[in-house]
């Protein structure tokens, strides 16, 4: 559905040219839910804006739903719903009017647009707000209206740029409930950008990690975590003088990557912690080392980002 080859985008600024996107290639298949994860300024939005024809490419090529973004931008625009970072609705316009206008802009007939508007108002729990000016909506309602606007013409592809930024946790969860159920019903392809780790982790089936204008990883959250971060087994031993020996044993475990000792605590990072933990304890026992506590810590996508860049996404995003 989405294909991009060597996309670049350079912005001219007073301080000289800034390469916001530096050679991005990607393929998204029909029905996938893909997230661009990365800190602010990583080039996520710039990439999405190129794919949605809102920003000319500096070089490279891209097609969305079979339409080239440069040669046939109108073709692309007919196939996509776009929910940008800002508020799509105009403050002085009424909720239903905005939806109907959007439908007409997407070449729907007035009557089809009115029907679809009412359907979406119901689906996104906006019923009762149809005749209110958009400015009077709460943050969560405005965002749901943005999604409704993007979905008016039932596009096969939906782009969501930072859909939940600025929403309180309850509204975020509510927005995602709606997006996932709408997707289940329609099977549309969803491409989103986010700097929320948990959002990418729980919502996306595939995560593309971006940093500094390039994609540095692309896989399912589970595989990214297993391959690039791995589980960490923490074991506390009875006596502190045994922890050196314990670390040596840990280092010889299958797939062991990194071992750290902190007092009586020995930590080892490896691929599948839960499967290896019993073997680790058995080997410690054989060497006469007594483990008094053990736990496996699953990695987060932040650990993936940390492993890839040496920086934490939490700091980078802050």
């Amino acid at each position: 559905m989405i294909h991009a080859r060597d996309l670049t985008r350079t912005f001219k600024t007073k301080a000289g040219p800034v390469e916001a996107v530096r050679g991005l290639s990607l393929d998204v298949a029909e029905g996938e839910l893909v997230a661009f994860l990365g800190p602010n300024g990583a080039g996520k939005s710039t990439s999405v804006r190129m794919l949605t024809t809102l920003l000319p490419l500096t070089s490279g090529s891209a097609s969305v739903s079979g339409h080239d973004v440069v040669a046939d931008p109108a073709g692309v625009r007919r196939q996509i719903g776009y929910v940008g970072q800002g508020t799509g609705s105009g403050p002085y316009h009424r909720v239903r009017d905005e939806l109907v206008t959007q439908g007409k802009a997407q070449r729907m007939t007035a009557s089809a647009a009115r029907k679809r508007a009412d359907d979406l108002l119901g689906m996104l729990e906006l019923d009762g707000l149809a005749d209110r000016p958009c400015a009077s909506l709460s943050g969560g309602q405005k965002r749901r209206l943005d999604v409704a606007l993007g979905l008016m013409h039932t596009p096969p592809i939906l782009f969501l740029d930072e859909p939940s930024t600025g929403l309180d946790p309850h509204s975020r969860a509510n927005l995602w409930d709606h997006i996932t159920s709408l997707r289940k019903a329609s099977g549309m392809t969803i491409f989103l950008t986010t700097h929320y780790l948990d959002e990418a982790d729980t919502m996306a089936e595939r995560v593309m990690v971006m940093d500094n204008g390039i994609m540095i990883a692309d896989d399912t959250p589970a595989r990214l975590k297993a391959d690039l971060a791995g589980d960490t087994i923490h074991v506390s031993v009875l006596c502190e003088d045994q922890s050196g020996n314990a670390a040596e044993i840990a280092q010889n475990l299958p797939d062991a990557r990194e071992t750290r000792v902190d007092g009586r605590d020995v930590a080892v990072t490896l691929r599948d912690g839960e499967a290896v933990l019993p073997e680790f304890i058995r080997r410690l026992h054989q060497s006469g080392i007594e483990a008094i506590s053990a736990r496996v810590v699953r990695p987060t996508l932040d650990d993936v980002f940390l492993g890839l860049t040496g920086r934490s996404l939490r700091e980078a995003a802050a």
Binding site: T52, T53, L54, A74, R77, R78, I80, Y82, G84, Q85, G86, T87, G88, S89, G90, P91, Q102, A105, Q106, R107, L149
Partner: peptide, 15 residues
């Protein structure tokens, strides 16, 4: 105002 808020952009993403 609409340039800042994003509602102008919304129309640019339509045909």
């Amino acid at each position: 105002e609409e340039l800042m808020s994003g509602s102008f952009e919304r129309f640019l993403a339509t045909p």
